[in-house]
Amino acid sequence: MKTYLGVDVGSVTTKLVLINENYDLVASIYSRTQGNPVDMIKKGLQEIRNQMPQEAQIAGVATTGSGRQLAGVMLRADLVKNEITAHAVAAMHYVPDVQTIFEIGGQDSKIIIVRDGIVVDFGMNSVCAAGTGSFLDHQAERLNIRIEDFGSHAMRSQNPARIAGRCTVFAESDMIHKQQMGYPTDDIVYGLSQSLVRNYLNNVALGKAILPKMVFQGGVAFNQGIIKAFNETFHTEVFVPPHNELMGAIGAAMLVHEEMRDDHRKSSFAGFGISNTEYKISSFICKACPNLCEISQIAMDGKVLARWGARCDMWDRIDKK
């Protein structure tokens, strides 16, 4: 059985999926990156191997997410794809008549506009992480509730507090004020959910033609409070696909399937052995010019595999031994 591995290394979580030629999910891993993508990829790969059926073999590997370059080098991926394309492809598979995709992840959020199965426009949050999962994570911590319980608190709210959503710092002072006014936690939590949705629609989705069917995916789509806030805003049901948190990885796997089939290529996958390989990530400052670029590099057994962070081509060439 031919299977395709999709790896989505995000800022907060790392996702690995294995799909077969019919795009069915064969195995999947969802775990926190914990600031250590290399170990998470290694661990995840081990897990995938354990879940993988005997007869399955890897016919293609794709990486996506903000850590896609790193993961791509480690796994010797056949395809390194940006997360927008990956998310769109997966959503269109699960919901063929989708017209709008909301995706909210750990540190970025995007909206993708689809018409007749073709991406026609997209938007992404700018500099700030307001309106993303990190915002909720921070506020949950402040309120001393677990992020997993955030949704159930929100669902119990009777009279949501109105909280400024433009900026995390403003939201925080607004929230403290509402706490001091005596609002119960449930109302504050749902108020935060509404402010996140408002922020998202006013920034990321500004000027986009939002039409049903709407799909909501990414890790934040686990949160019932946010789903409720979306539904109330649009007076319609926002659809959360199964595996909402894995969509990026699934999309990447689908794309590599498409590419391998079209090109009749053989996968360059590094193999499951890399779980036992030592990778060393280091960084240094290049002093060749006044730009003082911060270069990071990944090495395996003392051999440099790739470098990033330069503003010129000087460090792009890697001596192949």
Binding site: N82, T85, V89, P96, I118, V119, M124, P242
Partner: peptide, 26 residues
């Protein structure tokens, strides 16, 4: 770079639809 890649992908993929095996859900 992420935005540029996605933008060019969007243009390049115009008209390419993935062959969708029976819609799994909904």
């Amino acid at each position: 770079l992420t935005r540029l890649e996605a933008f060019l992908d969007m243009i390049k993929r115009k008209g390419t639809k993935l062959p969708t095996p029976t819609p799994a859900y909904c």
